[in-house]
Design a protein around this nucleic acid. Sequence first.
DNA 1: AGCCAGGCACCGC
DNA 2: GCGGTGCATGGC
Length: 289
Amino acid sequence: MNHIQFCNCFTIAVKDFNLQQTLECGQCFRYYKLKDNAYLVLAKDQAIKIVQAQEKLNFYCSEAVYQAFWKNYFDLDRDYRSIKVSLSEKDDYLKTAIADKHGVRILQQEPWEMLISFIISQTKQIPHIKKLIEVLAQQYGTFIGVYDNISYYSFPTPKQLKDASEEDFRKLKIGFRASYIVDAVNKIESGTIDLDAIKKMSDDEAREVLMTIKGVGHKIADCVLLFGYNRYAVFPTDVWVKRIVEFYYKVNGKNMDMIQSFAKSYFGEYAGFAQQYLFYHARDNKIGK
DNA sequence: AGCCAGGCACCGC
DNA sequence: GCGGTGCATGGC
């Protein structure tokens, strides 16, 4: 039994940051609500407890670990104030969404984890996506430790998944997405796709490569680009975003190319941030259902 | 109870 | 090319 210890506590002051919003906005799935407003967050091979009290953020780790990993993970070096000010000037609807979800930050997550997570996400709701990822990690990931009698596992690497069959994944109730995961693992393990090489590509080239994976279309590729590669100009367009763009911006929602070119010219280099504020605000308030 | 979910592949035209 | 349909499963 390797009990996860959260002895050290490192506190920093934060602005334009809300832990709950950042974790629950739909960009990540490996977080667990503990008691007293605390969250346990898993990323790479690490687990951490975090608590926010107003503009103070308590990381239960050493300062060295915070500096080396979590600061970057939570994107705490970026000036969100200026991003929000510039986007809020665009229109009142976006301004309202930003005011509502003012504390969202776009995490810096792993491309591989984002790829598999968003493949799993299609036609599923967040609680179920979380469960499926948890089961996948339990089955194939590396044991991290135990906290409050619950065992935590890292997200499985391509290597850890390479011997699993479609049938194995179906047993975990992943359903029709099972073959998609097999294809993703094969393309990475065989070297057909190099997730590191994608870092050097343009957004369009990168999307094209990601979309050669079965089960990865425009939307999932864009989620990987925004949340895994931090390509802030991409504008992942799901049903919610489509409805917003149709209703508030009078763009023909049937035509994906028109939505994309609208987002590019209207929101510019910060389209990804705009998308996240709009999406989370709409979903949380059931706007446009 | 049944509808539908942070889509996509595949099939007909 | 483009519009319709099936897909696995569980939450609401």
